[in-house]
């Protein structure tokens, strides 16, 4: 691994991330299962104006689509539960645990 680039001061508005988000997530072990443990109800999401999941998900798994819906990816999920807790449309996000032995494996939690 190369040395981290010198960080800039906070608040300058042009902060370069220390590492890319992809690199950040690559530090985490995921044993990806074949069954998606998150499902999203597209119709409900298209009617949602806040889409809090997009900003709040620490793994950045939710992305807004051009037609106002939500695209999501379950593979790099921390299994924290933020998305379904903050969703203000009950039932739009269905979230369960991945199948046994799958999902995130924290080595230094």
């Amino acid at each position: 691994m190369s040395a981290a680039p010198a960080s800039e001061q906070p608040g300058d508005g042009h902060r370069r991330p220390e590492v890319s988000f992809e690199t950040r997530m690559a530090t985490v072990e995921f044993r990806v299962g074949s069954r998606p443990h998150i499902t999203v109800d597209g119709d409900t999401c298209r009617g949602c104006t806040t889409k809090a999941c997009v900003h709040a998900c620490p793994a950045n798994l939710f992305a807004p689509t051009a037609d106002g819906g939500i695209l999501f990816n379950y593979e790099q999920c921390f299994e924290c539960g933020t998305c379904y807790m903050i969703c203000n449309h009950e039932g739009a996000i269905t979230w369960t645990y991945p199948d046994g032995g799958h999902g995130v494996v924290f080595r230094r939690g």
């Binding site: 906070p10 902060r15 220390e18 950040r24 985490v28 924290f106």
Partner: peptide, 22 residues
């Protein structure tokens, strides 16, 4: 991490695991 009172404590450190939990 980048606050002036914290950054010097971490200089030269590298991310080895990122995590989140409720």
């Amino acid at each position: 991490r980048e606050h002036p009172s914290v950054a010097p404590l971490l200089a030269g450190s590298e991310l080895v695991e990122y995590a989140a939990h409720l």
